[in-house]
Nucleic acid binder design. Structure first.
Lengths: 192, 192
DNA sequence: GACTCGACCCTAGCATCGCTAGACAAGCGA
DNA sequence: TCGCTTGTCTAGCGATGCTAGGGTCGAGTC
């Protein structure tokens, strides 16, 4: 049995290597540069090996997305737990969210922009995705206001942040006023 | 001279045909299906003809985006001018914006999601894009509130709508609660 | 009215993409 | 030691965006 176990360990290790390498390559040169050939070369295996771990490129993007979701949830919780009061937590959340998107553009794309073949907003949605939304809900639910469903409020707030993140990164919004936009958004949306 | 004029007319006509065909194909089967070969076949010319009009696929996407921007601006102005009061105009704007995005997903992608090689938020930004933003500003500036720069408010409101539009279309948000989200967004963001 | 010459378009092909079939080698269990 | 499973690689398929080069057709000139 120990032989099989060793093989499974090695296999899992290689899978982590694939995901980490794909992410690294995407952050360095964009997802367009993440071709199966380049990826295979970087992990020092041939192309078909990738397909013994993932169905195709889409699933690799999906794996990066799941990893990113877990990181984002952790980052959000860390930031909000260090802040004081409902409003403080919302401000911290908004900042860390946009910061995460700006610092990890490839991961953010994998999560919300690209097709990673993951089911969203459904029962069989992977746990990391549900948990990332839950992390947002924990702080945003506090400031939804009377008579407003916390989840609905979270969706709206999240969508606003997502809009700011994507439009800024796509060059549609100038980064200079980013802080002022966040301030305005929190002031208006959050009920404290 | 009339021969040259005729040729120029025919050339311009063919360019319109290319853009219209690309848009049609994208709306029918998605932008992935818009390959230079398929596009060439549909307009009944060979591939290289496309490159005598546009630098490449990117520029074709950009042309569709410009066409879409003009349409969106017109739609927004039509909807807001038919509504009463500042709040009524904002509600109408939000609805028509999301409606436009839902009805013309390919055009919306060309505008805000894909790389059409267009310069945004700059001095040399094409007129249709500036005008589309201006159309939003006309109604949203009314409800920015005291001490808030109308353009900044417009950016935030626009980003929120963009977030709702993209997340909904990507399956990240369920369409059922769309109306409630718009209502909440307008209630909180707009100062009436 | 014949001819020259330039503008225009098409065929063919390049490098690269995601993905797969089939040959081959390595290492396990008997 | 042998047989077989498991795993990996080489090679190749169809399709992508884009381009080079040849050929045709028609406008303008003598």
């Amino acid at each position: 049995m120990s032989v099989q176990e060793r093989k499974q360990r090695e296999r899992a290790e290689r899978e982590r290597l694939i995901v980490a390498t794909a992410r690294e390559l995407a952050e360095q040169q964009g997802w367009d540069a993440v071709t199966t050939r380049r990826l295979a070369e970087r992990i020092e295996y041939s192309q078909p090996v990738l397909y013994s771990h993932f169905r195709g490129k889409r699933e690799i993007i999906g794996a990066v997305a799941l990893e990113g979701a877990a990181e984002m949830a952790a980052a959000v919780r860390a930031a909000t737990s260090a802040a004081d009061g409902p409003r403080g937590r919302v401000v911290a959340l908004a900042r860390i969210y946009l910061d995460f998107a700006a610092r990890n553009p490839a991961v953010y794309d994998a999560l919300f922009q690209l097709d990673g073949g993951l089911p969203y907003a459904r029962e069989d949605t992977p746990e990391p995705l549900k948990d990332a939304f839950a992390a947002l809900l924990e702080s945003l639910g506090e400031v939804a206001g009377d008579g407003v469903h916390p989840a609905l409020f979270t969706e709206v707030f999240w969508a606003s942040l997502h809009g700011l993140a994507t439009l800024t990164r796509a060059g549609r919004l100038l980064p200079e006023d980013a802080a002022r936009r966040v301030e305005l958004l929190v002031d208006r949306l959050a009920v404290v």
